[in-house]
Design a protein around this nucleic acid. Structure first.
Lengths: 204, 204
DNA sequence: GTTTTTACTAGACCCGTAGTACAGTAAAGA
DNA sequence: TCTTTACTGTACTACGGGTCTAGTAAAAAC
């Protein structure tokens, strides 16, 4: 089976790089098979069409991203017992990580598919949706733990606050990409961090 | 000349609607000419290729968006003399405006082109970049006026804070689109508003 | 009032890309 | 040994972008 998995993930690697730099529609199967050093037939053996490729890319990306968040915030909470402080540490680490990726970060896969959604089938769109809802829940829980200790200084919708992490990352990546500056996303995360610091600052 | 302007803007209208719902690459010239009720030749008379169409769409969109910000914050500052309060009023109005657009908001044109930038020529990319830099400057100036009165409660990079408005709008629109919820963008703007309220709150 | 330019229509044609179909094959596994 | 897996390779269809050209009705310029 190592033959299969090798080729399949090689296709995904090549495709992801190309999709991130040019967009999905602009990435031809021709260049994918050239990059992965297989035949056209080989490509269609693994993926019945481009839609199936998109789905597989998204699935893989979401898994990686979830693992990244798991590791990051677990490490952060090992460094500190307080939920607010570990959140702040986690966001700092996330910002630093984004800055260390010179070619940017694959986070944009979500946005890229979001902006071409009529092209993809319902399964792909639903995958995208569920991933973001998962992140909402994850961060909402963390914020609720914080709010149980530090009373928020402003009334906020906790679902929206949970979404804010994804929103800030995606928004930062859009700017980064359009401005061709490599630190916009990390700067925006640092502003989110600043907000949380003020929102959950002790009252006296 | 009304013939020209009519047809040209009709093409842009049809194209924008389709690009926003399917992405640029997925929008065929065929369906544009069908929607605008012209011939293929007529399309290429107005735009030498799809790239020229993209450029014209972006130019038009940026103009509309600038006008919108002008009107919004001018109105807000008429309602209040204090720069912080008029900013907060302006953001509230922006949030409400976004919520009133059932089909979402064309803001995504920026993101859509950002995610397919290798497809477009340098002129289109630069247009995109300059628009965002313009918004950075606009909001940075407004934040500096606020900071001159209310000392910020946290140290922030003023360029990043200026970018934050664009970032929050774009990020919110990505979520909105992916989640198929129509209020994500306005909720994210309300969180930005909450941040600014806390950041510039009087010290005692 | 004639000429020129503008704003198109209509149709033929080339090229690249998605996708299908199918014949063949080398290697691994049952 | 037989079958399945993981491909290669070729040939073909269909569609979309883009070019070219011939023609034309109406407005603008002279």
């Amino acid at each position: 089976m190592s033959q299969r998995t090798d080729t399949r993930s090689r296709i995904l690697d090549v495709a992801e790089a190309s999709v991130l730099s040019k967009g999905f529609e602009a990435t031809s199967i021709e260049e994918i098979v050239a990059g992965a050093e297989i035949s056209r037939g080989g490509f269609f053996y693994h993926f019945k069409d481009k839609n199936a490729l998109a789905r597989a890319m998204l699935e893989r990306y979401i898994e990686v991203e979830n693992q990244l968040y798991d590791d990051l915030f677990e490490r952060a909470s090992e460094l500190n017992d307080d939920p607010l402080h570990s959140m702040l540490i986690g966001l700092k680490m996330l910002a630093e990580m984004l800055e260390d990726m010179p070619e940017g970060h694959p986070g944009c896969v979500i946005a890229a598919t979001a902006y071409q959604d009529r092209l993809f089938d319902k399964g792909v769109q639903e995958l995208n949706r569920q991933a973001i809802l998962g992140w909402r829940k994850r961060f909402r829980t963390m914020f609720e733990d914080i709010a149980a200790i530090y009373e928020p200084r402003d009334e906020v919708n906790m679902d929206a606050l949970g979404d804010m992490v994804s929103s800030v990352v995606e928004g930062g990546l859009v700017l980064q990409r359009a401005l061709r500056e490599h630190n916009s996303a990390s700067e925006q995360i640092m502003l989110l961090r600043s907000y949380l610091k003020l929102l959950f600052s002790p009252k006296a």
